[in-house]
Design a binder for these strands. Structure first.
Lengths: 205, 205
DNA sequence: TTGCTTACATACACATTTGTATGTATATTA
DNA sequence: TAATATACATACAAATGTGTATGTAAGCAA
C-alpha cells in the first residue's frame, strides 16, 4: 500500500492508541485482541505490530499519555506558594483532579481501564508498584501542605499532619474509585467536590 | 472411573472453588482456563463442567462464599446496641473487617481477586452494581451510627451525619484498596487500625 | 438384582489469537 | 536518480481454549 510520511505514521500511531483505549474500555484489556484494536483504528494488525511490540506496550502508552501529566499537575497545585492557605490548596488540588476527570474524556476512560478493566498480573503487576509509588509521593505533598497549615494554626485539635495526609489520601483514593464506578453519576460524581470540601472543612479550625 | 457419594461430590466442588481462587489470584480471572483450575484441583475439565456451567459461575461462587457473610457481620457490629458509644462502634466495625482480612486467607485472596485480578466487563459488569449497592447499605448504617453519635453530642463541630458517613466510607474504601495492593505490608497493612482510629478521633469532641 | 442416574473422564470439532515471515509501494537519502 | 529504509498489508503456522458429545463405573432406589 501507500508508504506514509513520518507525520502520517505518527498519526496512525495515535489512532491505534485511541482505538486501543476504546476497545480496552469496552471489552477489558484481556479480551481485547490486536485485531479488535486494528480494525477499530481502521488499519491491519501489521500496522499495530509495526508501532508496538505487543498489547502490553499499547497499554503503557495509554497510561503514560494520561497519568504523567496528571501527576505533574497535582504536584504543581500542591507545591506552588499561591495566595491561598494550605488547606484550600489541598482542596483545590483534589477538586482540580475531579474537574479534569469530568472534562477530559481520555483521562476518564483511562482511569476506568486502569481501575476496573485490567488484571494486574504478570506484565501488569509492575504497574501496581508505580501506582503505589505515585500515591506515596502525593501523600507526602499533602503532608507538607498540612504541616504548613499546622504552622499557620489553621488546624483543629491536635492532629499530626502525617495522619491527616494519609487520611485525606485514602479518602480521595476511595472517591476516585467510586467516581469511576458511578457510571450514571447518581451516587458520587454529582457531589464529588462537595465531599472534598466537607472533608477539608473537618480539619479547619 | 469411580462414582462418588454425594459427600464426595460436594468435596470436589469445594476443591474446585479453592483451586479456582488460587488460580484466579495467580493468573487473573481472564487468563485462567478451566484446565488450569481443573488440574490444580486434581480433576479433569469434565468434573468442572459437571459442577459449574462455566468460569463465570465459579467466580460468583467464590464471591458469595466470602462477601455475603462479611456484609452480615458489618451490619451486625454497626446495628447492635452494645455498650460502646456509636463512634467506637464504627471504629470497631472497620477494625473488625481489617482483622478478618488479616486472619482469613480466603477472604484476603477473594478481595484481591475482586479488586485487581478481574475485569468488570460483560458478565462481570453486574457485580459492580452489587458492590455499589453494598456500599450504599454500609454507608447508611454508618450514617445511622453518626446520627446516634450526634444525638449523644459526641461529635465535634457542626458536621452532618450524612457527609461524615460518606467520608468515612470513602476513607475505608480507599484503605481496603491500598491494604490489598500493599503486598509486603510495609505501607498500609501494619498501620491500618491506627489509621482507622485517627480517622474516627478526628470526629470526636 | 436390575436399571437408572450420578459423577465424573476422555475425545473431538471448532473458533480464536498470536507472532512472524514475507511482500510491496513509497518516502527518504546519498 | 538509484539504493535503502520505512510503513504498512497479507499470509502462514502453531498453540490454545471452549463447549459438547460420548464413554463408563459405581451409587442408589425399587
Amino acid at each position: 500500500m501507500v508508504r506514509k510520511t513520518k507525520e502520517d505514521a505518527e498519526l496512525t500511531r495515535r489512532r491505534i492508541i485511541d482505538a486501543a483505549r476504546a476497545v480496552f474500555l469496552a471489552r477489558g484489556v484481556s479480551r481485547s485482541t490486536l485485531e479488535h484494536i486494528a480494525s477499530h483504528a481502521e488499519v491491519t494488525r501489521g500496522a499495530v505490530y509495526w508501532h508496538f511490540k505487543n498489547k502490553t506496550e499499547i497499554f503503557h502508552a495509554i497510561r503514560e499519555q494520561v497519568f504523567l501529566p496528571l501527576i505533574d499537575r497535582m504536584d504543581d497545585t500542591l507545591t506552588i506558594q499561591g495566595n491561598e492557605d494550605p488547606l484550600t490548596q489541598i482542596e483545590n488540588s483534589l477538586c482540580d483532579t475531579i474537574n479534569e476527570l469530568n472534562e477530559n474524556i481520555e483521562m476518564r476512560q483511562t482511569y476506568e481501564i486502569m481501575m476496573i478493566k485490567c488484571e494486574y498480573v504478570d506484565e501488569f503487576a509492575t504497574v501496581l508498584q508505580q501506582i503505589l509509588n505515585n500515591c506515596s509521593n502525593i501523600t507526602e505533598k499533602i503532608q507538607l501542605a498540612y504541616e504548613r497549615a499546622e504552622a499557620q494554626q489553621l488546624l483543629i485539635g491536635k492532629n499530626n499532619p502525617r495522619a491527616l495526609a494519609v487520611d485525606t489520601h485514602l479518602f480521595f483514593s476511595g472517591l476516585l474509585h467510586m467516581w469511576v464506578k458511578d457510571f450514571d453519576g447518581s451516587r458520587f460524581r454529582f457531589q464529588a467536590t462537595d465531599l472534598i470540601k466537607s472533608h477539608i472543612n473537618l480539619r479547619r479550625k
